[in-house]
Amino acid sequence: MRPAIVALLAILHREALRFLGQRGRFIAALVRPLVWLFVFAAGFRAALGLSIIPPYQTYIPYETYIVPGLCGMILLFNGMQSSLSLVYDREMGSMRLLLTSPLPRWWLLASKLVAGAAISVLQAYAFLAIAALYGIRAPASGYLTVLPALFLSGLMLGALGLMLSSFIRQLENFAGVMNFVIFPMFFLSSALYPLWKMAEASPLLRDICAANPFTHAVELIRFALYGQFEPMALLWVLLALAIFGTVALWGYDPARGTLTRKG
């Protein structure tokens, strides 16, 4: 087997073992979207009326509408957390060890992104399973067709997190960016309300939502969950992945964060 593949598999395996060993992290990642599903969506069901919009072919309850958005929320938080761990690893040393491997740095970072996205997908599936038990079900084949959409979206959001971490010197700043990035991305998207609804309130906000890559990740997941393909959403997600990934891999510098050290 080629050394690069051996390293990729090892990084995937390590992340999977760490994930399985950290049940608290798994549960915490699920609690957030479940609260939105069971509490927020139940409360807002009556207040938010939804018309029939693709990919839905009939009226749907609000809980059904927000499930893809909450999958996106899992991917978004996980992508940011994975990147946070890259910052932490950079500070603490284990990332240093990884980077002394005789493999291209971009490959090692890309492997970390792939591993992070794979863990995000597992979490999203766990959430979909609980939603199904709650009665919010997609067509059976949708659970298969949504896989590439979840994975691509997870990669794109992980790359966004890595890009941000590449340009943030210290952890404290990253915590700030979590608030400045995650919440605006989530609320300025189609995760909680369709864009036509947003347009009624403000065409400008609708335009901002439409330019938000997270909106397109959510729509890619939404359509895929119902066995449909949304080419524009895929294009946006791929474009964002290419930009975030390139900037992140170009900008990742282990020397960053050490400028103030005494050496």
Partner: peptide
């Protein structure tokens, strides 16, 4: 290389730590 800061993955077993690092150098199986 042995860095000043500890770089063992404390959640993994002793063997897994060795295998992980071997894999980063392309050594497997």
């Amino acid at each position: 290389v042995v860095f000043q800061q500890p770089t063992l993955d404390l959640d993994l077993t002793v063997r897994r730590n060795l295998l992980y690092f071997a894999a980063l150098h392309g050594i497997s199986g």
